[in-house]
Amino acid sequence: MRYAMAIDTRKCVGCSDCVVACQTENNVPIGYCRDWIVETVAGTYPNVEIELRSERCNHCDNSPCVRCCPTGASHYEEGGIVTVHHNECIGCGACIQSCPYDARYSHPEGYVDKCTFCLHRVEKGQKPACVSVCPTKCMYFGDLDDPNSEVSVVMRNRNHKVLAPEAGTKPHIFYLT
């Protein structure tokens, strides 16, 4: 089993509904976020191309954050989901330094926090909060090892990319282009 997410950059309108849903579902403290919207505009007006991306932890196969963690607080859950045991985290910041996506933040209570792919929902067979609220249905979530999961199907049919592949992290958030 290998959980992954595919996000359609051509359907995303950048409404931030995923951000709000995540903050509500996971009680993210005010002023912080586990997922966020990025807009890139390339070219010179009027010949520009816009890309909208909903970004979050990439739940990498080769996670530098898990490797650097001195206590083992950062670890892989079943299906390759990377999470943090709050009561093992000492708040040293090593994982924050090692993440090329800057996907982690220091929770006001001291430990490091990040996207969990809504593990508590996924375990019950539900989709992550961000995926389930998306009004344009631009996000797909599922098991990459299952050829019939919606994420496997959409990735077979569409061109896709990952962020900063040169960092060698083998990320598992795919952007459909």
Binding site: V19, V38, Q97
Partner: peptide, 23 residues
């Protein structure tokens, strides 16, 4: 000329705009 503009909605303390978690 090809310009690229990058706008992020993220504003986490000590992470944005520039990482500064170690003082």
């Amino acid at each position: 000329m090809n310009e690229e503009l990058f706008i992020s909605g993220r504003d986490n303390l000590n992470i944005d705009p520039v990482l500064h978690i170690w003082h």
